[in-house]
């Protein structure tokens, strides 16, 4: 596999007030790699991926995404956000816009695509997540699973090189989890660089190149799935695995 470095985090620290949410994070992610991050709630895993597209600001260390370092410079932030798509736990679709408009909004206004072209591309991605028949409905008319797939399509419409998933199935009813995971597996097989915060260990086993276990703001363990599940080193990882498996 070509090892083009996509994301590099060096000695990253972040505090929320007194709380040390990210404590010396070092991470390198190559093109096409799929990383699954897990850990107990409050361990900083969401904060970590939210730092990558600057929804949260890190306070120390360096984050370099595709050669661009994240600083307060708004141009670098915009450039990185254009390359990094994100899927949220609560979907966060725009409720006042149809599914199609949700998907074509950013391509039209950020990528400056002509409207017709943006909508055509949006339909393409909606077809890929199999909700092209819902394109003209509003988010509130869709099921949770459909909304999350629409949200994935919205992110893909910007043709990002990296996709971040922040607990994409945690807010879903159990019978809808699979349809979303299937889309994500398909995306992974297509070669997308993905960072996924999730507790879906089945997904992690199937897709991940590396699983990262975080606790109290630190990366406790980072291994390939086989080693992670079969020979976890740290006690904390063992305890966590015994709780969720």
């Amino acid at each position: 596999m070509s090892s083009e470095l996509m994301i590099e985090m060096k000695n990253v620290h972040k505090w929320f007030g007194e709380l040390h949410v990210l404590n010396d994070i070092n991470l390198e992610i190559n093109k096409g790699e799929k990383i699954v991050i897990c850990g107990p709630s409050g361990s900083g895993k969401s904060t970590l991926i939210r730092c990558i597209n600057r929804l949260e600001e890190h306070q120390r260390g360096n984050i370099i995404v595709e050669g661009t370092e994240l600083t307060n410079d708004s141009r670098s932030i915009e450039r990185i956000r254009g390359e990094v798509g994100m899927v949220f736990q609560q979907f966060n679709l725009f409720p006042h816009l149809s599914i199609l408009d949700n998907c074509s909004l950013a391509p039209i206004w950020v990528r400056k695509l002509p409207k017709a072209e943006a909508k055509e591309k949006a339909m393409e991605y909606l077809k890929r997540v199999q909700i092209d028949d819902q394109a003209h409905k509003y988010p509130a008319q869709l099921s949770g699973g459909q909304q999350q797939r629409a949200a994935i399509a919205r992110a893909l419409c910007m043709e990002p090189r990296i996709m971040l998933f922040d607990e994409p199935t945690s807010a879903l009813d159990p019978e809808m989890i699979k349809e979303v995971l299937d889309v994500m597996v398909g995306l992974a097989q297509g070669g997308m660089t993905m960072i996924v915060v999730t507790h879906e260990m089945g997904f992690a086993k199937e897709v991940a190149d590396s699983i990262i276990f975080m606790d109290e703001g630190q990366i406790v363990e980072a291994k390939n799935p086989k080693d992670f599940f079969d020979n976890p080193e740290s006690e904390r990882t063992k305890t966590f695995l015994s709780q969720i498996l």
């Binding site: 597209n53 929804l55 915009e78 609560q90 966060n92 409720p95 006042h96 206004w109 949200a151």
Partner: peptide, 24 residues
């Protein structure tokens, strides 16, 4: 989440306000 989703797709402050936040 509406602010975050707008930022994540790369909308600038004014576009986010005009297209997503204010209409709602």
């Amino acid at each position: 989440g509406q602010y975050e989703a707008s930022q994540a797709v790369g909308l600038t402050y004014w576009r986010m306000m005009a297209l997503v936040i204010l209409p709602q």
